[in-house]
Design a protein around this nucleic acid. Structure first.
Lengths: 124, 124, 124, 124
DNA sequence: GTGGTCTAGACCACT
DNA sequence: GTGGTCTAGACCACC
């Protein structure tokens, strides 16, 4: 599959799995109703413990991205990519705000931060 | 002193202490050469464990913000506020970039993020 | 036939099948002595595994709703719709009671629950 | 502590733990800011695996009932008992509705169900 | 001491 | 085969 996890990555492995599945849904690489590889399959492919995969799957289900059916497998839920984008947007906005807050406390201004965004190279 | 730590804050306590001392230096509330309260004093005032204070102090020393003289106490190093600001700026830029990266993966653009910065209310 | 099973429904498939057959009997859509479609037929129509259909059939027989004659097929038993209704009523009462119990533990009253029933829209 | 789990109870053990802690908060037996027994303590008292307790704690945190701080322990969050009551009320209403729905399909009426509620003995 | 993550492996219900 | 629950035990960061 399209997932890669690394122990070097400071993020917990189950989150790495979650994030990459969310991304795949957001990008439409996997679509609502589609079946995911089984936990056991993922376990083998990613070479990590079944429990870790299970945890990622369970959390994704709790967040509404997928639904799991015993005996059948896991399926992508009807959440629209747009919805996911908005959710992620809100999350990023929140992190951004606390980042700006932090900067302000050290004498940086909103403009400084905006400048940093401008200087970011998105390849365009 | 000027430090407050809280269990509600998800950041580790030793980081809360470090951040607030850094801020105090950045803002000039404490100046190079000035002596910090002793670990014992901080321990009592903040009502936290001595080991936690020690860790904060040790980390600050490793990062060059303060220096410790056994038997005398801890003193603010010669690092200039400007230097601190730049250091923090670099740190923020890095976090910002990975935040934008994350957004791009979910379909947000650099402009979306810049917009979020604009919308941030810094009270001006 | 009149049965639809869905993966979206969190209930086990064999239960979905059972429930719909029970309903059909309760409503008189199929009557005592009448023959049910064969397991093979159901398997094809519902596009589910034969083992799942078998389980539903076996459970229905155990509960007395139908009887199976090897080589001939399955037939609706003599259970009267009224009997089924009462059985279901008892089942619902039991679930209802534990639901109220649960509510009581969180500070809801019997009256709160009765109010919820009143507010239910049964289209009348 | 005030928690009892049983393997006989068809509910998963981690849910039994969760439910009883939610109840304790709803009833005000434990109050916001108060510290819960440590996972290890609960593990010993309940005689179940640490993982099972951890799962309950993690889920409670995700639902906003408590917050956990590494090295410090778990604390009751600021969620008001009223809020919990409402949340539970909505949950019960939903279950109730699908129970009524089920009844309707078997010929029971809304009034039948209301009668069942009336007949429930809440000791008053 | 605390919670957080990860592993290896068991048993169950469902398909 | 599938996912769901539970166990026993490891290692880590934090207090």
């Amino acid at each position: 599959m399209f997932i890669v996890v690394s122990v070097n990555n400071p993020e917990p492995m189950y989150q790495q799995v979650m994030d990459q599945i969310k991304e795949a849904i957001a990008e439409g690489r996997i679509t609502p109703g589609e079946q995911l590889p089984s936990i056991r399959t993922l376990t083998k492919e990613l070479k990590i413990s079944a429990i870790t995969v299970k945890r990622a799957i369970a959390d994704l289900e709790r967040e509404g991205y997928i639904y799991a059916r015993t005996g059948l497998g896991c399926f992508v839920a009807d959440k629209k990519p747009l919805e996911i984008k908005e959710e992620k947007g809100a999350e990023i906005r929140e992190k951004l705000n606390s980042l700006i807050q932090e900067g302000l406390r050290y004498g940086l201004t909103k403009e400084d931060v905006r400048g940093m965004v401008e200087e970011f190279d998105d390849g365009k």
